[in-house]
Computed example of a mutant assay.
Amino acid sequence: MKKLALYSIFTLFVGFGVKAQDCETLVKDCEVLLKGKEKNFVSDGQVYTAFLDREKAEFKTTFFGGTTYRIAATAGTDDEYVIFTVKDLQGNIIFSNRKYKNSSYWDFKVPITIPVIIETELDMDKKITGCAVMMIGFKR
């Protein structure tokens, strides 16, 4: 019985370690997407990470008028696993990469300062569980 309990605890910690390590790798991949080939986007300093299992994660931020932003997201080697949707505080959809084959990043310029909610979820047709990483950057 003791062996079973110890094995269960060990498996639990190893499992969390694998998830954390997987997320750390994805953060580096997401940084590459955020900077892009032209390397003219700078991170806002936040890394939005969630382990998703058939669910959505929400992140709140503010976009400042006149600024060009890039949202980048990844959940694995196929960068089209993550769907991100930008909504205003009333829930109106401003943008979703779902309409663009789940593009792993998107650039846009906002005309006015606006607080937003960004929802991330995995594309259930491609992946049902795993770590999703999103970063937001602005153009230099």
Rank of each mutant, 00 (worst) to 15 (best):
N97W: 02
F51S: 07
V47F: 10
K3Y: 07
A73D: 04
V27P: 01
I93E: 15
D53E: 09
W106Q: 11
F10W: 11
K37E: 14
I117R: 11
L26S: 05
K87M: 13
K126F: 02
F108E: 00
D53G: 04
E24M: 11
P111S: 14
E38M: 11
N97Q: 03
W106F: 11
P115Q: 14
K139W: 11
C131M: 07
D44S: 06
A73F: 01
T120D: 00
K139I: 08
Y69H: 00
D78L: 10
K39F: 04
G66Q: 03
L52F: 06
E121D: 00
L52C: 06
S104P: 04
T120P: 00
G65C: 08
I128E: 07
Q46W: 01
L52V: 07
V14T: 14
F63C: 04
I136M: 09
F63E: 02
D44R: 07
E119G: 01
G91E: 14
G137A: 07
I9Q: 12
D79P: 03
Y7C: 11
E38I: 03
I118D: 04
V42P: 05
M124V: 09
D78E: 12
N40I: 03
C23A: 15
C30L: 04
S43V: 06
I9V: 13
M1S: 14
T61P: 01
E31N: 04
D29N: 13
Y7D: 15
A57L: 09
I93M: 11
T62Y: 00
P115D: 14
L89A: 12
A73K: 06
C131F: 03
L12W: 15
K99R: 12
K60C: 08
L12R: 15
S103N: 10
M124F: 02
G65F: 03
W106E: 07
I117D: 05
K139L: 12
G76E: 00
D29H: 10
K109Q: 08
E58H: 12
Y69E: 02
G66I: 02
T25L: 15
N40C: 01
I83N: 15
L89G: 06
G91V: 13
V18K: 07
C131G: 08
Y69K: 03
L122S: 06
K19H: 12
